[in-house]
């Protein structure tokens, strides 16, 4: 079975992110694979090895944004493709979903894995939206895959209220959450192979799509208002005394 996995390149989560001249800036923080997507790559690799299939990793971004793809290749993905086109520069989620859907088709995948959410834009829209564009079911927030064969997938979903077991026909879009299990580290061999890999770039013309114009518009960016927090350290002779003072102070704030 041909499997695809979609990954995004994002600034490291430890980066100090600020607004500079109206643009987002993360200084010289490294760009990495979206942490959620490592779980998706892990799931894709495991299932490809169970079923005897191959994994194509797909990312949409600027022309030089290949770090996430290289990380996924180093983890063991067979092929990579970068979707990049000036026409997609201002793409909103729906436009991105159209581009990803076309790339998934081009990769001839019948099962595609996504992460839960991108840690930069924090929307969590693309798994469902891409499925909708493809006309495939979306099986999201998957914590465990119980069964998978060329016709169906049976999974446990991690929802707010507990674990839901669902079964779906294939082809399908699956998003993976952290409960799935720790992603593997890239191997030495993998890193060397990834460094040498020639990653094809797919334009909208190559994909035969015209992504819809963006309707979600970014009007302004700002840093969060500085909260003036005056920290009061509570001291006392022993734990009992400290707790008594702290409890009084908390009660006085009338928040409980």
């Amino acid at each position: 079975m041909k499997i695809a996995v979609c990954v995004k390149q994002v600034p490291d989560t430890a980066a100090q992110v600020v607004v500079e001249n109206g643009q987002v800036s993360w200084g010289d923080a490294p760009l990495v694979i979206n942490p959620w997507d490592e779980y998706a790559v892990e799931a894709a690799l495991q299932k490809a090895s169970d079923l005897g299939g191959s994994v194509t990793v797909i990312s949409m971004g600027a022309e030089n944004e290949t770090e996430a793809l290289k990380h996924a290749l180093a983890m063991g993905c067979n092929e990579a493709a970068l979707i990049s086109d000036p026409a997609l520069e201002d793409a909103d989620n729906a436009a991105a979903a159209h581009a990803l859907a076309a790339a998934i088709k081009k990769a001839e995948a019948e099962l595609v894995f996504f992460g839960k959410q991108a840690v930069d834009t924090d929307t969590g829209m693309l798994p469902g939206q891409t499925a909708r564009v493809l006309g495939w079911p979306a099986v999201t927030l998957v914590a465990a895959i119980q069964e998978l064969n060329p016709d169906m997938i049976k999974v446990e979903r991690a929802t707010e209220e507990g674990r839901q077991v669902v079964e779906s026909k294939l082809p399908a879009v699956v998003s993976i959450v952290k409960d799935y299990g720790e992603p593997r580290y890239p191997s030495f061999m993998g890193i060397r192979k990834a460094a040498r890999a020639e990653i094809p770039v797919w334009s909208t013309a190559d994909l035969g799509v015209e992504a819809p114009a963006a309707v979600v518009k970014w009007a302004a960016l700002s840093s969060p208002p500085k909260k003036d927090i005056e920290t009061e350290m509570i001291e006392g002779a022993d734990a009992g005394e400290i707790a008594e003072v702290l409890a009084d102070k908390i009660m006085a704030e009338k928040v409980l």
Binding site: V24, D120, D122, P224
Partner: peptide, 10 residues
């Protein structure tokens, strides 16, 4: 966005 490091008006 960016886990609350920034706010966007959209």
């Amino acid at each position: 966005i960016y886990a609350g490091k920034l706010f966007a008006k959209v």
